[in-house]
Design a protein around this nucleic acid. Structure first.
Lengths: 225, 225
DNA sequence: TGAGTTATTCGTCATAAGACGAAGCAGCTT
DNA sequence: AAGCTGCTTCGTCTTATGACGAATAACTCA
């Protein structure tokens, strides 16, 4: 599984306007200090800072690769590895999951699940390349933040469908906190939707959707796609 | 859909030992000449050659990004765009498709479909992160080589399951010809398996598998995973 | 045969990357 | 107040990148 994350980080750094900021993002996400990283790479700590601060604007592929590999290696060889934890009770958390061969337009996706768009400030343009249906409570309580990336499968351009939602606050907070962001978040029969959730969605440019269909109905409709 | 391919190419270049070779691979895959590329980028053609030949060993992220974007842009704005063709009859070709939340060990995957490993020279180590079930004949006859990438979903570390296979030659030739390679190729009830197919599989380090289960049985077993 | 396309090699140049170490600053501890 | 950690800023150095253009070589095709 290393490959997918390695590629994700590498492409994100390479395609970023500010590679240094992206390096920093992932270093912090993996809870590695500049000093640790520089020690591993046998470099002066100031070098890392120079990259992250943008003094070096366009690091070479060799540099990017060794930084990515160092980050993953440092994370791996650590007592509480964030991204190399053992596979756990994912099957209880993930109720259904799929990736589409071709991207679906968000409006078509919405119709299929009779969804209502709550985040009107977010333009409905990001195509949906898959979905993951999650038990909201179990996700929040048993999934370590560090395992969140596993629910993204092979694209973050997907819909995260949360069931068992009360106010819809925690799921959006989780999305906000984690570096990987979905294109869409769907709440299945929420009791009500907290305005903060909508605000967070708009901040993250994530489409927030509510559907009043039942959990099983949503799952069967999605699996029929 | 541009994003996924863009990220794929970018990460491949960045993580490659020889970024230049990877650039060349994708330029040729997209059927773009050095001259076209250099003209688009307002550069001298020799610059591209210098990159590809490895004179510049570690191009900066800025350079990689503009090359990747130029390649995709040039492909897009062309009469017979290879990677931006309209969505077509994919639904007829793809019988089933899924990505797993966690990688499956190849031996477990084999057991699930009662598969027999034909490529003994290939070590059984690449985890399977998803599968695509394809109608072999339709794939070969109606899917343009340029659309092959659509069957890979979000990871190439997957099993391509071909149904309606006679000798199993064409599918492996297709795999050999295309830059994206799966981790595993499965033939569902082939009449017989051409030794050349095995040879090609071993050359590409792809596990080649035969199962005698029926098409519908294989699909239902896979979808139950 | 000779023009046209495609790609390579290479000398050269300015600028940026890649690296160091010293100095400095904010925020904690003890 | 002294010391530690985490990070930043900056002057300085060597080397490599990023770019050019000219020369060359191999191929096709009229």
């Amino acid at each position: 599984m290393k490959g997918a994350l390695r590629e994700k980080i590498a492409s994100e750094i390479t395609l970023s306007d500010y590679p240094g900021k992206t390096i920093r993002k992932w270093r912090e996400e993996l809870e590695i200090t500049q000093h640790e990283l520089s020690k591993f790479l046998e470099l002066s700590p100031s070098v890392i800072s120079d990259y992250e601060s943008g003094r070096r604007k366009s690091p070479g592929t060799k540099t990017v690769r060794k930084i990515v590999d160092a980050l993953l290696e440092l994370d791996k060889t650590r007592k509480s590895s964030l991204y190399f934890a053992e596979p756990d009770n994912l099957n209880e958390i993930i109720l259904s999951m799929k990736d589409f061969p071709v991207g679906l337009s968000p409006s078509i996706f919405l119709k299929k699940i009779q969804g209502v768009n709550l985040s009107k400030a977010v333009p409905l343009v990001r195509n949906i390349h898959g979905y993951t249906v999650l038990d909201s409570l179990k996700t929040i309580t048993t999934l370590r933040s560090s395992d969140y990336w596993k629910i993204y499968g092979w694209s973050t351009e997907r819909a995260l469908v949360f069931t068992g939602v009360k106010f819809g606050r925690s799921p959006m907070v989780a999305v906000r906190a984690h570096p990987l962001k979905p294109a869409m978040v769907v709440y299945v029969r929420p009791e009500r939707v907290d305005p903060l959730a909508v605000k967070l969605a708009e901040l993250e440019n994530v489409t927030l959707v509510r559907t009043q269909l039942s959990k099983s109905e949503v799952v069967s409709r999605l699996e029929a796609l």
